[in-house]
Nucleic acid binder design. Structure first.
Lengths: 197, 197
DNA sequence: TTGACATGTTATCAGTCGATTACTTATCGT
DNA sequence: ACGATAAGTAATCGACTGATAACATGTCAA
């Protein structure tokens, strides 16, 4: 008997599967540059099913985007919840940095996030972007850092996101100015980008 | 006599006009989210003319993108060329910061830049993004700052670009976490965003 | 004046898009 | 076994997209 046929899935499971596929698809093409059909093919279901499951492409993107940023926010929150955090401790600062570095394994989330952040032309998306960015800021703020230090931490993260979005780590070459910036920005975390072991 | 009719323009002038219109259009919708017809309407010409002038929509976007980043790079270069630059001077560091805040008046350039930086899914665009980012890094590096300080300067700029793309400055509200980040990130430069006088 | 070239436009096309409708089939309680 | 409900697909639509071809008109040198 062929397992490819006939077996069904609960709507919830299928929904998760489609969201995961949509995350990969939107990471590549962004909101406007990704068709619902591309998402459907990535998920192995029909295009109308994707649309009916989420209502519209916009609602699907918003779901994917909010989950992506939510995952990043939660990674920071986990650091704060796991152990006491000393805002003056360099070790604890490093813990937050490492939490971000771990996220580099899942570049799709970061790229979806950047697409959402850049999509100021779609009011619903930019509204979600503002809300999500606010949540991330509030979460990192829980470190006890002041506004300025929190801002600088997030700024550094934005640079890394941009570098990943332009695939800087896949085009390292000696003497290239961008390579200098890439190695300087990622440091040891560069390994995280090459071998997602 | 009606000036709207009959008067023609040199192709070069018209080209500049279309590029300016395309900058506004792409700033709103990005590459995939902006049709050549939208650009044509913004420029007041026909859609086929826009296509024929640049060959393809991709070539038009690349031209617009490279000009946008070029303008930013040149703003930094101008600071370095105008007067001697002391890498250890806080005043000179402020000069570079101010050069960037001046760019906040033309948010279209910054948004086009962010769209290009995020468009990793289009190889030609991400290749241009890497090259342009490398040029910006090399230019800022001319301050005499080391890699790390240059990196932090650019990271801060990326944060501001992201905040602008999500229109944070147009949605300031008391008690909002994002508002805290916005005021903290832009500081006095916030005025630059409201009244482009 | 004229004719050649540059500056544009109108008409049109094949492909793609998001969405709707109608239909099919698996699953499960009774 | 069976009927109701949930899970999914095939077919199709009108709108839009980027691009091409054919055509029209302003401009300028001779």
């Amino acid at each position: 008997m062929n397992a490819a046929k006939a077996t069904r899935m609960s709507a919830d499971d299928r929904r998760e599967l489609v969201i995961a596929a949509a995350t990969r698809a939107f990471a590549r093409g962004g909101y406007a540059g990704t068709s619902t059909d591309a998402v459907a093919r990535e998920a192995g279901v029909s295009q109308p099913y994707v649309v009916r499951m989420f209502g519209t492409k916009l609602e699907l993107f918003l779901e994917v985007f909010e989950r992506a940023v939510g995952r990043i926010r939660d990674a920071f929150a986990a650091v704060l919840d796991d152990d006491p955090f000393d805002p003056a401790s360099d070790d604890d600062r490093a813990r937050m940095g490492i939490a971000y570095t771990e996220l580099l394994r899942d570049q799709d989330f970061l790229q979806v996030m950047m697409h959402g952040f850049s999509a100021g032309g779609v009011p619903e998306i930019s509204a979600a972007a503002r809300r999500c960015m606010g949540e991330v800021f509030a979460t990192v703020r829980r470190t006890g850092w002041d506004d300025e230090e929190t801002r600088d931490f997030i700024a550094y993260g934005m640079l890394l996101n941009v570098m990943i979005s332009m695939r800087a780590h896949e085009h390292l070459g000696e003497g290239d100015p961008l390579t200098a910036l890439t190695t300087c920005a990622f440091g040891d975390a560069l390994e995280m980008l090459e071998s997602p072991a």
